[in-house]
Design a protein around this nucleic acid. Structure first.
Length: 467
RNA sequence: GGCGACAUAGCCAAGCGGUAAGGCAGAGGUCUGCAAAACCUUUACCCCCAGUCCGAAUCUGGGUGUCGCCUCCA
């Protein structure tokens, strides 16, 4: 039994079989870098970051490519508005992307290719399509002829005729068919352009992903991912271009993350229900955001609200509490071997990992995975206490961090110690308590609380944590 | 019009044929100088109606409702 993936292409869950044993070649459509990315983008990135981490957790070597679209209409518009070059905009927002992505604890991709840095390959890709008769040029534009590609519509499970029937696209008389899409766009006044066999111009949107995916991963890749809205037309078009050119299957598995909605509606600027990731990260830790987003299945839409963020925050608190309590036992517990009974506890604790893998293997069921972690936490909380050996507590801590790692939650374990002043206050309070001077003890505790240090009295002494 | 998804406790959310996980919130309790944390107990006619089956939240048909894609979009 291995990992199963729901494949949009077949609409079935399938056993994951990599092209090369032990390796995963995956490509995920990244952002158009004309703005800060919003929390909807964040969900998609987070989902695929988790997929990637989980593959690594299961021992795969992952080549993870996520592109930056750094040339398109929106980029040009933004550059014109700000009176700077398209490249200026791209550079700026790529930098901002990393700021937010790093803070969200998104692992850096193996490569983050930029469309403009692959222009020669894009042009030769298009040229191949023209040479093979899948594309035609009109006035410096180059279009892909969808009816030439037999499999068109196989990803979105629609026929070209059905798509056309519902189409709301403008009729362009120069195209052979309304469903034909641009591979190359002739330069318009004031737009950045590159030299090509069809004159100055720039690539259409879909071609960059096909080109960079094949260039960096090969003509057939294992997994292609993105937001659900990319199924049509973007991914459909990618398949058409790539398979028309190579004659091989482009991607074996297609994964799509569902939407993040606000008040049950799609986020949109016109509805003014738009949050950037940065705004949210100012109010909530990445751990909270990640727990929130991973607590539902990636193929189901989730609704965003501050109330739900608060709930997630409490969940993170529960995890943290358990961990600080266990760490306290590692520091103050008994330094001895495990009794027979404790060995049983340890064994049972370790079994949660098997359960975790079982549910996560099933199409990355992070919701179930999280519930296994909470089960583990309750078990540890119940059965490990101040009288337990350090080893047992240490075992539980490692296990919790281990299961949390593919989710990217609570992985920044570096903690600051307490400074001398605070340590002295804690000592003073302990003395006051021994003298039954509870008023003074409580005063110091309140003072520390105001400083962000929470004290908890245990049978073995005082335990502290940060608020 | 075409294609599709979803409807489970106050809130969120798994489960997808064998009799309802988990989190948050609430109530009661244990422990504690108090508190906190933790633990225990407690809260579900699984949208409706038919049907298949020994057995359905899970499958089939029909409703109702919400949402998405078919246009730039994660």
């Amino acid at each position: 039994m291995g990992i199963k993936i729901y494949n949009t292409l077949t609409r079935k869950k399938e056993e994951f079989v990599p092209i090369t044993e032990g390796e995963v070649k995956m490509y995920v459509c990244g952002p158009t870098v004309y703005n800060f990315f919003h929390i909807g983008n964040a969900r998609t990135f987070l989902v695929f970051d988790t997929v990637r981490r989980y593959f690594e957790y299961r021992g795969y070597k992952v080549r993870f490519i996520q592109n930056f679209t750094d040339i398109d209409d929106k980029m040009i518009k933004k550059a014109n508005e700000e009176g700077v070059t398209v490249k200026d905009i791209a550079d700026k927002y790529i930098k901002e992307y990393y700021t937010d992505a790093d803070k969200l604890n998104l692992k850096r991709a193996t490569v983050n290719p930029r469309a403009t840095e692959h222009m020669d390959e894009i042009i030769s890709f298009i040229k191949d399509l023209v040479d093979k008769g899948y594309a035609y040029e009109v006035d410096g534009d180059v279009y892909f002829e969808t009816r030439k590609f037999k499999g068109y519509g196989k990803l979105s499970h629609q026929s070209i005729d059905d798509l056309e029937a519902g189409a709301r696209i403008d009729i362009d008389e120069r195209k052979k068919d309304p469903m034909d899409f641009a591979l190359w766009k002739a330069q318009k006044l004031g737009e950045p352009a590159w030299e090509s066999p069809w004159g100055m111009g720039r690539p259409g949107w879909h071609i960059e992903c096909s080109t960079m995916a094949s260039s960096l991963l090969g003509e057939t890749i294992d997994i292609h991912g993105g937001g659900a809205d990319l199924i049509f037309p973007h991914h459909e078009n990618e398949i058409a271009q790539s398979e028309a050119r190579s004659g091989k299957q482009f991607s074996r598995y297609w994964m799509h993350a569902a939407y993040l909605n606000i008040d049950n509606q799609k986020m949109s600027k016109s509805l003014n229900n738009f949050f950037t990731t940065r705004e949210i990260l100012e109010k909530y830790d990445a751990d909270v955001v990640r727990l929130f987003m991973l607590s539902g299945h990636y193929r189901n839409p989730i609704n965003f609200s501050l109330d739900l963020m608060e709930q997630a925050k409490s969940g993170i608190e529960r995890m943290k509490n358990s961990l600080t309590n266990l760490k306290y036992i590692v520091e103050n517990g008994e330094d001895r071997e495990l009794t027979a009974e404790e060995k049983e506890i340890s064994l049972r604790l370790n079994a949660y990992k098997d359960k975790f893998i079982e549910v996560m293997d099933d199409d990355f069921n992070t919701a179930d995975g999280i519930s296994v972690i909470f089960d583990l936490i309750r078990d540890a909380n119940t059965n490990i206490n101040e009288a337990s050996p350090k080893k047992l507590a240490q075992n539980a801590i490692e296990l919790i961090y281990d299961l949390l790692s593919p989710l990217g939650i609570l992985q920044n374990t570096d903690e600051d110690g307490l400074d001398e002043k605070i340590e002295k206050m804690i000592e003073d309070r302990q003395r006051a308590r021994e003298e039954k001077n509870f008023k003074e003890a409580d005063r110091i505790r309140d003072e520390l609380k105001a400083m962000g240090i929470i004290l908890e009295d245990t049978a073995k002494g005082v335990r502290w944590k940060r608020a």
